[in-house]
């Protein structure tokens, strides 16, 4: 089978594996982003664990904040990218936008899970409970459920273009729904007040710096994962096409 690929005049010579990330469908520079993330993460850890002062009432556990907030930010950014890519896909019908949408949604689910877990770890010592039904928490959980649904919808539809189209429609509805969910829960909460309040953290300048460094590092990590994930997606799709052509050729 491999030799067949090699001599096939229509398919051309097979590409070496390392060339695949530079395919047109890929985001281009996974390596650059990966290096940036690799360098930025230890710096962010230093700022979170050493540079930022110890919080007066919560103590060291508050340092989770410097990863938790960036994780939540990246989750939101990722779903926003999915939303934009879905819209552009429906408008332009270029496959790379669908690749971008699915890759970003997957990473978004990962970071939403991270934000939820880290948030719970922080909430337990500070609030005395793993979870409270606060608007922000409910909205985050909502994000998780909706985008897991997005991935389930994708895997349930076989036809690739239909899958891309339907996922784009769902990706748009889901993101439009995010502010609606947030405000409906907030309005609902004015009637059923929360016992614990999430706010009240007065950020000192050094804390703010540590947070900003964390946000930058996590964004680099997101870009690195996104470019890698979309390169992999592009390769997988190309492989599927090649395999199909091969089967057709063998049948002929």
């Amino acid at each position: 089978m491999r030799e067949y690929l090699g001599v096939s005049p229509r398919l051309g010579t097979p590409m070496a594996t390392h060339e695949f990330p530079r395919l047109r469908h890929g985001l281009g520079t996974p390596r650059t982003f990966a290096w940036a993330a690799l360098l930025a993460m230890p710096v962010a850890m230093y700022f979170a664990l050493a540079f930022a002062p110890r919080e007066a009432t919560m103590g060291n556990v508050q340092r989770i904040f410097y990863i938790h907030v960036p994780a939540a930010w990246v989750a939101f950014l990722a779903f926003f990218v999915t939303f934009v890519a879905s819209g552009v896909y429906l408008y332009r019908r270029q496959e790379r936008w669908d690749i971008l949408a699915v890759s970003s949604a997957e990473i978004g689910v990962l970071f939403t899970s991270l934000a939820l877990v880290l948030g719970s770890l922080w909430a337990k010592p500070v609030w005395g409970a793993w979870w409270t039904w606060d608007p922000r928490l409910i909205t985050t959980l909502f994000l998780w459920m909706v985008y897991v649904g997005y991935l389930m919808l994708r895997s349930a539809i076989e036809d690739p273009t239909q899958q891309a189209r339907f996922a784009a429609v769902f990706g748009i509805v889901a993101f439009v729904d995010v502010p609606i969910v947030y405000f409906s829960i907030r309005w609902w909460r004015t009637i059923h007040p929360v016992v614990f309040t999430g706010g009240g953290l007065n950020l000192d300048t050094r804390m703010l710096v540590a947070l900003l460094v964390g946000l930058a590092a996590m964004t680099f990590l997101y870009l690195a994962l996104l470019s890698l994930r979309s390169a992999i997606e592009a390769v997988q799709r190309r492989n599927a096409v090649l395999l199909q052509e091969l089967e057709e050729r063998e049948e002929a």
Binding site: F142, M145, V146, G149, M152, L153, A156, I157, E158, D159, Q162, F166, V169, F170, V173, A174, D177, I180, V181, F183, S184, I185
Partner: peptide, 22 residues
């Protein structure tokens, strides 16, 4: 959306219920 999906009956509540939460 789910009419042509493989797991259509099971998928609809998973997609619909969170979105209609408001």
């Amino acid at each position: 959306l789910v009419a042509s999906a493989r797991t259509r009956e099971a998928l609809l509540p998973v997609l619909l219920l969170p979105v209609v939460l408001p």
